[in-house]
Write a protein that binds this DNA or RNA. Structure first.
Length: 581
RNA sequence: GCACUCGUAGCUCAGCUGGAUAGAGUACUUGACUACGAAUCAAGUGGUCAGAGGUUCGAAUCCUCUCGAGUGCACCA
């Protein structure tokens, strides 16, 4: 393991020395791992729980912590070591934090440390939207999660390949094109074609459902089948229409990715996997690696309670699993990845269990390094969102509403002071911050009930809270520029200052843990708490107006370090950091 | 029926790889702008951690069962 936290490392060395003085030995890794934060910050900066030592020393933890405290050597960095029950609480001098944490933060060095020892080449596949459908707030959760996880892992030092896998083939496409050609009366709009196409899909479903049970139903089915055949054959009027309309949807996706500042290293399309994947499965069947059941070809996984993984329908065409199988082979063999993460809705859990198992049975060792990162879906107060039913909140509506709200509710007061460009930029940054934070702050297995009015409330634990703290720091630094290069950190003795420094020293540990667990929500919590501590410090300690120049400089430097950390943290989540707001 | 996820304050959620007194936000009641930015801060009210057993020196956290909510389970993606 990499012991990247300088304060924890200092504590580890001191404790190791004390243990040795007591005639015993414990590895640095074991000590480092066992360091925790005390429940109350005035008990100390770090605590060491003596539970592991209790076993090898055959004494009670409270006794050991007492002996350890007596054997700790204090110096200018470590100023207090006190036993409290089974814990040994350690307090460090402000200058220890200043030199080991704040200076590296201010130079930027602190954010360049490698946090993981092993960095296997990992593919993160996320954002698998269907073409010919509208993008809605549900897609946003996936996008925010994927983007932040890519950023987190890269920050921690992992080699990441990001990929998207849009669904540009299938019955949803046929339905959309069918309605567009046979029933639609509206002209194609000059702009917003992607959104318009989504409405065609939704209308197609309404009409089809309407005609279910009428003589028209059979006819509709025949027409859809004919369209699908044309698409598969790769020629005909519907194929041409598909090629054209597909671009409209891709355009829409790209505009959203641009807004979100998301880029993909690889774009895979279902249409590219379709025919080759079916051909490969036929080969595998011929080689005796797959079996036939009720006319379909696949793999029976009943013994593992995974059902039957169907790979070819009885009509010989492939399925979603078929394409995922081929795509996985491509990732392993051509892109040479060692780990593969799929960020997909929890409803696909069985699908991925089946696909991973089949890959394993086919002899792909990497299959055991495949991981389905499942998340719960976003629904509306009156139930599940479905582009089929048309009860969705389009992504663009959310963004527009949010930006408008920020402008009228918050930025109106600056309308004579700031340029229109500034207002627009900041509204967009704040809207983005609110949306990203809102999507990320909850654990992935929690459902998100999307209520527009709730989302427009920007107080309390929200993205703008963190952005606001950052903007205020920047404003402070503009108004009171730092004048001295060296800082006397020892002057930062106020409890609020101490807590601030403790918080900053924990940044890399927080990100490393979040990255290890694929948990951006943990960074949300960290940033929120850090921003909150800054607000306390800001209210308790005069900064720019402090008369003692040395204290003022130290506080300004601390504020600058908080700003740099918040900015880095927001960057890891994909949130912009406004210089003013 | 089988499998998976969830159940913590009125509401929305942290805490879950066992460890110190279960925390935030919101709502409600108060207080703080001639001030370095009030999108802020301070104080108060609010808990049978769904329930019952078990493992352990120690359980919101791990195991089993029960109850409740949701999702998935063959030719959709």
């Amino acid at each position: 393991m990499i012991k990247h936290d300088s304060i924890r490392l200092l504590a580890t060395e001191k404790i190791a020395a004390a243990i040795q003085k007591m005639g015993h030995d414990l590895s640095a890794d074991e000590i480092y791992k066992a360091l925790v934060e005390p429940p109350n910050s005035d008990m100390g900066d770090l605590a060491y729980g003596c539970f592991i030592l209790a076993k090898s020393l055959k004494k009670g933890p409270p006794q050991i912590s007492g002996e350890l405290a007596a054997n700790m050597e204090l110096d200018s960095n470590l100023i207090r070591a006190q036993a409290a029950g089974p814990y040994l609480n350690l307090t460090f001098a402000p200058q220890a934090f200043g030199e080991k944490v704040l200076n590296p933060i201010l130079t930027g060095e602190h954010f360049k440390k490698a946090l993981v020892e092993k960095a296997p080449k990992t593919m993160i596949e996320y954002s698998q939207p269907n073409t010919h459908k509208e993008l809605h707030v549900g897609h946003m959760r996936n996008l925010c999660l994927g983007d932040s996880i890519v950023r987190m892992l890269r920050y921690a030092g992992r080699e990441i390949v990001s990929a998207t896998f849009p669904g540009d083939m299938g019955t949803h496409v046929a339905k959309c094109l069918w309605y567009m050609k046979k029933h639609n009366q509206e002209p194609v709009p000059a702009t917003g074609k992607g959104e318009w196409l989504g409405s065609m899909y939704s209308k197609a479903n309404l009409l089809l459902e309407d005609q279910n049970g009428t003589p028209q139903e059979d006819l509709n089915r025949q027409e859809l089948t004919a369209i699908l055949k044309q698409l598969e054959a790769g020629k005909g009027e519907y194929f041409d229409l598909w090629k054209e309309t597909r671009e409209w949807s891709i355009e829409l996706m790209k505009s959203v990715y641009k807004w979100a500042d998301v880029t993909f290293d690889e774009w895979y399309f279902e249409s590219e996997m379709d025919a080759p994947s079916a051909a490969w499965v036929k080969e595998l069947y011929a080689e005796g690696k797959l079996e036939k059941s009720e006319g379909a070809i696949g793999k029976n996984l009943e013994a593992e309670k995974l059902g039957f993984c169907m790979l070819l329908k009885s009509d010989g065409t492939g399925l979603y699993a078929t394409k995922d199988l081929l795509l996985a082979r491509h990732k392993f063999q051509d892109v040479q990845i060692e780990k593969s993460v799929y960020i997909v809705d929890m409803r696909q859990a069985l699908h991925f269990k089946q696909v991973f198992r089949v890959l394993e049975m086919l002899g792909f060792e990497q299959a055991k390094n495949c991981f389905h990162l499942q998340y719960n879906y976003v629904e509306l107060p009156d139930g599940a969102m479905s582009s089929r039913k048309g009860n969705i909140v389009p992504l663009n509506d959310l963004v527009r509403n949010m930006e408008e709200h920020v402008k009228t509710q918050y930025l109106a007061r600056y309308k004579d002071e700031w340029s229109q460009d500034d207002v627009n930029l900041i509204a967009s940054q704040v809207a983005k911050g609110a949306i990203f934070y809102g999507m990320l702050r909850m654990d992935t297995n929690k459902k998100i009930v999307f209520d527009m009015n709730e989302w427009l409330k920007l107080d309390g634990e929200s993205g703008p809270f963190i952005q606001y703290s950052y903007a205020r720091i920047q404003s402070l630094l503009r108004k009171f520029p730092r004048t001295q290069k060296s800082v006397n950190w020892a002057l930062l003795t106020h409890p609020a200052e101490k807590q601030m420094m403790q918080a900053l020293s924990g940044f890399n540990t927080a990100v490393a843990q979040a990255a290890e667990n694929y948990k951006p929500a943990a960074i949300c919590t960290y940033l929120y708490e850090t921003a909150k501590k800054f607000n306390v410090f800001y209210h308790e300690c005069p900064i720019g107006t402090e008369k003692d120049e040395a204290i003022r400089e130290a506080r300004l430097a601390l504020s600058a370090a908080v700003g740099a950390t918040l900015k880095q943290g927001m960057a890891v989540l994909g949130m912009p950091a406004p210089e003013k707001m």
